[in-house]
Design a protein around this nucleic acid. Structure first.
Lengths: 221, 221
DNA sequence: TCAAAAGTGTTCTCTTTACACCCATGC
DNA sequence: GCATGGGTGTAAAGAGAACACTTTTGA
């Protein structure tokens, strides 16, 4: 039992987890095993412990509920309308995470009975105000493509220019000229050739590239 | 007495209040009347009530501690390192506010014994981690000038182009070509002539302008 | 030999920058 | 009449957009 002389809200960290798979931007959701909103899909997340920072809480929840760690994680916005959660006053510090397509083995958490990836245009109804959170995360992701190298966080260690261009086209939902894209992306000076070539396709092999600064997201322009 | 079966942090809303005065970007600070950090300068702010949203808490605190209302207020970031506050675990949802130069009568709050404006390059040592918060707010402000009309929020109802250019120059800390600035700012289509002229200076009177969409901050480019 | 993606430059357009002189007013 | 800020256009440079064909591989 914990007592205070004025009322305190509960604080959670919830995470909007994006990845790119099957040529779609996808979102990770968890089906709630308990009330409230039992059976509904929701964002992974949970209460912030007293001895951990908000960033630590977010990455711990991400690990516990999805088995994923070491990925890009950024604070998004804090949601705190009084009646968001029917149980008590809950303030949610929302994060978003970007996961490379090769790092996606999932695990169901204790307070969820299922975990799944959903395309952005096939999302189910979500619990609480999680639709607002998702919408804002999506806007932020789109905006950040324009002035940073966030998109690189979806890439595995080595990749072709075509794969990278695909990521931009999927998130922007529009096609880009191949030559202009290559000029631009190489001009950023953020990737370099590995010397290897991709193999296996029924076509000319492509040069493989790697990030010069993996993990780091650079502000450009 | 309020009791919970797991520990809850306290949540505050603190506000970084900017204005432009004496050709300087200035910041509003409050001298703390109570421990901890008694006598140190700090950001205005306070605990979020259980029946108000975070935005409401921020604007209420702003009104109570400074007498200012109806100004631009935007959520900045949430700070939650475990030991930020020596009393208990405190999570702070930080906001920033922009105040036009003509709207600045101040009032001291109950938990402060003084209120004052400080130039960004003459800030005193601040309480808690408020220097981090100020730094982030300043970065955000500078960044937003590039892709939005936030700067307009510093303006009174009517203003000259020179006054507007001054705001940009003060925040960016660099000079701009007058003709290029005018072409650009008029091209945005966000301001219009009032028909009036400024008066009083020992020089040719300047056309006065007003915002087409006061209150609104538009994303540009 | 065919299908499929890889790779590669140039021209045009638009945006951004640089730059200098006359005007209206108060003192 | 002089000091002060108000007001205006053009040319050059740079950034972004449009555009088509040859190459290499697997089947």
């Amino acid at each position: 039992m914990y007592s205070y002389d004025h009322p305190h809200p509960a604080v959670t960290a919830d995470i909007v987890v994006f990845t790119i798979r099957d040529n779609q931007l996808k979102l990770l959701l968890i089906r709630r095993a308990y009330s409230p909103h039992k059976g509904k899909w929701a964002l992974p997340g949970g209460f912030v412990n007293m001895n951990e920072s908000l960033d630590e809480a977010a990455s711990r929840e991400l690990l516990e509920e999805t088995g994923v760690s070491g990925v890009y994680l950024e604070q998004l916005y804090t949601f705190g309308k009084p009646k968001r959660d029917p149980r008590e006053r809950v303030i949610t510090v929302a994060y978003y995470a970007l996961i490379p397509s090769d790092k996606m083995q999932l695990q169901a958490a204790t307070d969820a009975d299922a975990v799944g990836w959903f395309g952005m245009d096939e999302l189910p109804k979500l619990a609480f105000d999680h639709e607002d959170i998702v919408k804002m995360a999506h806007q932020r992701l789109v905006a950040k493509l324009d002035y940073s190298t966030v998109a690189f966080q979806f890439l595995p260690e080595s990749f072709t220019l075509h794969e990278l261009q695909n990521i931009y086209e999927i998130i922007f939902q529009e096609e880009t000229d191949k030559r202009n894209f290559r000029k631009w992306i190489l001009g950023l000076g953020q990737i370099e050739e590995t010397g290897e070539k991709s193999t296996g396709g029924a076509h000319r092999p492509a040069k493989l590239f790697k990030k010069k600064f993996p993990g780091r997201v650079t502000i450009i322009k």
